[in-house]
Computed example of a mutant assay.
Amino acid sequence: MDFLALAKSRYTTKKYNPSKKVSEADIEALKEIIRLSPSSINSQPWKFYFVSENSLKSSLADASIFNKPKVDDASHVVVFCAIDDVQLFEEKIQKNLPEGAVAYYKQHIKPLSEAEIKSWFGHQVYLALGFFLSACAAMGIDSTPMEGIENEKYAEILKLEGYKPLFAVAIGYRNVEDANQPSVKPKYRFVAEDVVESI
């Protein structure tokens, strides 16, 4: 299937089949794909947690507000986290990135306020989200991006240090009764003329 066809068929899954799990081979492939996500200056200010263990996933579900049924029934929930320690980030890039990338950070990002720097970290994590959702679609795996989570509770459950959860993605396979799938509820987007211009 070409990418345009995938874009037309992919949708946000609202109801999962709890008995159908994503294979370990596909999970390992997704881990490698997300590791290869693009980011500004190759900054990679992130961590991704793939959670499938039932009790841990259940605890995350309880901290997922209206998304609880999706987390409960999905095969895995993937938690997308941004680094939350500017000094730690600077140490990591100084050690791992080329001189030009570090110089760009020092000139254009470091002079910003701490809140603005952390916002920039978050922007990179959202780039990874788009990459990940596309990969899931290409592999025939259904997905649900979820900002509707209790971030502080997620951090406590996962015992995070130096990183903070921004959002999560439930992955698995749709329940045949999911009313949100395109065969039941046609996909709606604004017309091209409203959102795309050629100049």
Rank of each mutant, 00 (worst) to 15 (best):
D2L: 05
L4F: 10
A5Q: 14
A5S: 14
S9Y: 10
S9Q: 14
R10E: 11
R10C: 12
T12H: 00
T13P: 00
K14D: 00
P18Q: 13
S19I: 03
K21V: 01
V22P: 01
S23G: 12
E24H: 07
I27K: 06
E28W: 02
E28K: 15
K31G: 10
I33G: 08
I34L: 08
L36R: 13
S37G: 07
P38T: 07
I41L: 05
I41S: 07
N42Q: 09
N42A: 12
S43R: 09
S43L: 08
S43A: 14
S43G: 10
Q44W: 03
F48L: 14
F50A: 04
S52I: 00
E53C: 07
N54I: 04
N54Q: 13
N54H: 09
K57S: 06
K57P: 02
K57G: 06
S58C: 01
S58T: 12
S59N: 13
A61D: 09
D62L: 14
A63V: 10
I65A: 13
I65H: 11
I65K: 15
K68G: 00
K68V: 06
P69V: 08
K70F: 07
K70E: 10
V71F: 11
V79F: 03
F80W: 07
F80M: 12
C81D: 01
F89L: 07
F89M: 10
K92Q: 14
K92T: 12
Q94K: 14
N96P: 01
N96V: 06
P98C: 02
G100F: 09
G100Q: 12
A101M: 05
V102I: 13
A103L: 12
Y104G: 03
Y104S: 07
Y105T: 04
H108N: 15
K110R: 14
E114H: 10
E114N: 12
E114K: 13
A115R: 15
E116G: 05
F121Y: 13
G122C: 12
G122D: 10
Q124D: 13
V125K: 07
V125M: 04
L127V: 11
L129P: 04
L133W: 00
L133C: 12
S134K: 02
A135G: 08
C136V: 05
A137D: 06
A138E: 12
D142E: 05
T144N: 04
T144G: 01
G148V: 02
I149Q: 08
E150A: 09
N151F: 02
N151R: 15
E152D: 15
E156M: 11
E156H: 11
I157V: 08
I157E: 02
L158K: 06
E161L: 04
G162M: 09
Y163Q: 03
Y163W: 10
P165T: 10
L166P: 05
A168P: 04
V169Y: 01
R174A: 12
R174N: 08
N175W: 04
P182D: 02
S183F: 07
S183W: 10
S183T: 13
K185P: 02
K185N: 14
K187N: 07
R189N: 10
V191Y: 04
E193K: 08
E193I: 03
E193W: 01
S198I: 13
S198Q: 11
